[in-house]
Design a protein around this nucleic acid. Sequence first.
RNA 1: GGCCCGUUCGUCUAGUGGUUAGGACAUCAGGUUUUCAUCCUGAAAGCAGGGGUUCGAUUCCCCUACGGGCUACCA
Length: 491
Amino acid sequence: MPEKRIRTRFAPSPTGYLHIGGVRTALYAEFVAKQAGGDFLLRIEDTDQSRYVEGAVESLCSVMKQLGIEPVEGVWLDDTDKIIQKGDHGPYIQSERKHIHQEYAKKLIEMDKAYYCFCTAERLDEVRKMQELTKRPTGYDGHCRNLDADEVKKRLEAGEQHVVRLKLPEEGTVTVNDVIRGDVSFDWKLIDDQVIIKSDGMATYHLASMADDHDMEITHVIRGEEWLSSTPKHIFLYESMGWELPVFAHLPLILNPDKSKLSKRQGDVAAEDYLKKGYLPEALNNFLALLGWNPTADREIYTKQELIDLFDLSKVNKAGAVFQIDKLNWLNNHYLREMDEQSYFDLVLPHLNAFKEDEDFKKRVASLYRERMILPSEITDQSLYLFSDQLDYSNVSITWKDHTKEEAKSRLEAAIEWIEQIDDTKQYDAKFIEEYIKEMIQKNGWGNGDTLWPLRVSLSAQEKSPSPFELIAVLGKKQSTARVNQALATL
RNA sequence: GGCCCGUUCGUCUAGUGGUUAGGACAUCAGGUUUUCAUCCUGAAAGCAGGGGUUCGAUUCCCCUACGGGCUACCA
């Protein structure tokens, strides 16, 4: 018997933005497929038309594209960012499969695994209220479960509003076998006869998702933990239809720092917000992949390919994981420093657009802050002092510790002289400048601190800044001497 | 309320019937150094609690507590 081809899917609803937890789900699904040389697909679950948000599908795909999570099949964007569907298991947009779902529902009714229900919303409300009042478990009371076939036919023909419900067993237990959690058992009698076709004719998640997973030959259903308790219904659906069960994997939730489910209130949950802020796809993927799973525990940095090769669904944690920005920040800084120079400039230079200085100068500034930033946008504020002509020395001491103004003056005057004599071709070479200035210090018999402090402060007007050598190499001869002169004038 | 899932440093995690319970981020302290960043060294910090089982439990079982999910004609 040939091995079944591994196929996984990510199936979000187009209700707005791509949730950060969704990114991890997509990532894991992609890992499983790619590791096995299988297929990863994207399906859009838009059976709830009332929650549909205009442009959500485009944005979903675009964010995934930016993150480098690309399905080989299903919904995607073409070169002009138009929505397309690729593959021969389509359509991949659930609302377009309405008639398919209805056929399945009909079949289930014929097999007595589902039934028409004519109960009104009002009646359902009343039933629930009574149940709550008498402190009984809430749920459908089975009112239409055993209606007479002729009556059903009559009411259907009369055009009465109706839904289709699953006819679930009334006793016994069902066991879900989950790769991550093992066997989980439920009592049938506590599970509601779920609506599978709504009165507008559209299927609900339960029918639509299972039918599509089957039709699309999905072998691994990887989804959030919130689906664990409805899995019995899904198993019932599969078994009623005589389909082979997929592997189920319910991932732990991603949490707020206070351990509640990650929510919009407590920070960004939209992946695109992180992208917009300047978090790198590599950092985001690396971080999210390790939230709830870890291959070895003695490494933090992994390429996507390594993650794919090492991933093991059965070793995913059971407990929810707090989304802590600190580690993401650290990773982002790491990737910022690792990436090639041109990509780095492409990312950072736009944040220096407000300044009129030439491109080469901006590049030198950008390089200077490469190891000092978490997000590219930080460069604007960090480097402000490098772009202003008039520095304000009022909040910082130019003199070193208990040295006198005269001592500082002598250092600075010498520095001007020395800087002026730097060969033009060497003026942006920080290493050379360091040796050069140190030679000056040595020749005069001064100390490092009492010379370098005044020099650095003169160049930056900042309490804290990169070294004077780096500053000179960024500013160049002319600007450097101008700044030292300015400081001298305030002494 | 009912059902289900979970619980190792502050956080992400590794791990095992016998370990000094390991790593990373964050924190703190030193070192390098003119300040910052980097880098190096080190420190503090954890098996939720109570019962079993066992020669021995953080690990296996039960209970409790706490956290979370579900309980829709939403996904």
